[in-house]
């Protein structure tokens, strides 16, 4: 019975030691990588880094392209209409055309 108890205490102690070793290793690694990033060349953020800002920018870009495509479609339609009237020869201004007023 006593042996079993001692065995259990030993197991708990070993587990605690293992956890302590693991935690200290983790802390060492964390500090090591933090130190590495500090030694590394400072990278200047040339683009907003917050996910929300990025989302807004990409959304604005998509809307911007939608606007551009819309304008191109309108200009193309207008151009086709002009070319159609030009082909029919009805775009020329007549001289001495009477004014309604």
């Amino acid at each position: 019975m006593k042996e079993k108890m001692l065995e259990k205490i030993k197991m708990i102690r070993d587990r605690k030691i293992k956890i302590a070793i693991k935690s200290s290793m983790f802390l060492i690694l964390i500090s090591f990588f933090t130190a590495i990033s500090l030694w590394a060349e400072e990278q200047i953020q040339v683009f907003p880094s917050a996910p929300y800002d990025r989302y807004i920018i990409y959304q604005a870009l998509a809307l911007f392209w939608a606007g551009i495509i819309g304008l191109i479609v309108i200009i193309r339609m207008k151009l086709k209409e002009i070319e159609r009237t030009q082909d029919m020869g009805i775009d020329k201004e007549e001289k001495d055309i009477p004014f309604l007023d």
Partner: peptide, 15 residues
Amino acid sequence: PNVLYKDFILWLIAL
């Protein structure tokens, strides 16, 4: 307006 309109299209794409 023909060529100017085509210019506008190209400018929009470039933008």
